[in-house]
């Protein structure tokens, strides 16, 4: 455990909490992609299946439970809450799950470190996490106006990924024999997806005006 990794995990948690509190406080989920949230829930469930038989640290176990719990709450709000579900932007959130899930499933069967069910599910979760933000980015692109909290959510998520990269660099430099190609490449792709958004977010912030994505 190093400071970069810790900062990454905290930023990840913060991003989820920003979203959850926004929904809770405004009773609205306008601008939020349910597809992305459900994909993240699938990522957490397939990755943290080992919660019940592998114990690494209390830190890891607590985070796993919290990530699954908070993301479930977001999905619950968007699907079930009587007021919130009415604000869901169904017509613009049309990204097809299958376009992301199917290639990740095939890839995890082809490229994995060990050929057993749980390792393949874990690998699937790594690939899926890399692209799970796409429906959210497409939704932002379609609706153009990004409200502050949704913008902050995507920004914090991107920052979390950036800190994970620093964490890998640090581990590579300090832990003899440490390498994790599969996670590195997926992580780089994932972080790359945020770069365009980051650019506009920082521009808007510098000019202290509302974030608006270009056509």
């Amino acid at each position: 455990m190093n400071l970069f990794r810790f900062a990454g995990d905290i930023l990840h948690l913060l991003s989820i909490l920003v979203l959850l509190l926004k929904i809770h406080a405004t009773k609205s989920c306008a601008g939020i992609s349910l597809k992305t949230q459900e994909l993240y829930l699938a990522v957490f469930i397939t990755r943290y299946l080992d919660l019940f038989w592998n114990f690494h640290s209390l830190y890891n176990s607590v985070f796993k439970v919290v990530y699954i719990g908070t993301t479930s709450m977001i999905v619950w709000y968007m699907r079930r809450h009587r007021n919130v579900k009415l604000t869901y932007d169904r017509d613009h959130d049309t990204f097809r799950y299958l376009f992301l899930v199917a290639p990740c499933a095939v890839l995890s069967l082809l490229i994995n470190a060990r050929y057993n069910l749980f390792e393949i599910l874990w690998t699937f979760s790594i690939y899926l996490e890399a692209v799970a933000i796409l429906p959210q980015l497409v939704l932002l692109q379609r609706t153009k106006n990004v409200d502050n909290l949704t913008g902050n959510y995507v920004f914090l998520l991107g920052l979390y990924r950036a800190f994970y990269i620093l964490n890998w660099v640090y581990r590579f430099a300090t832990e003899p024999g440490y390498s994790a190609w599969l996670v590195w490449i997926s992580g780089l792709i994932q972080t790359g997806l945020y770069l365009d958004f980051f650019y506009y977010y920082v521009q808007a912030w510098k000019q202290s005006k509302k974030l608006q994505l270009p056509s």
């Binding site: 990794r5 995990d9 990840h12 690494h56 890891n60 390792e119 874990w122 996670v183």
Partner: peptide, 10 residues
């Protein structure tokens, strides 16, 4: 080795 199969990152 069992220990190797535990992924230590989140």
């Amino acid at each position: 080795k069992m220990g190797d199969e535990i992924h230590d990152e989140l």
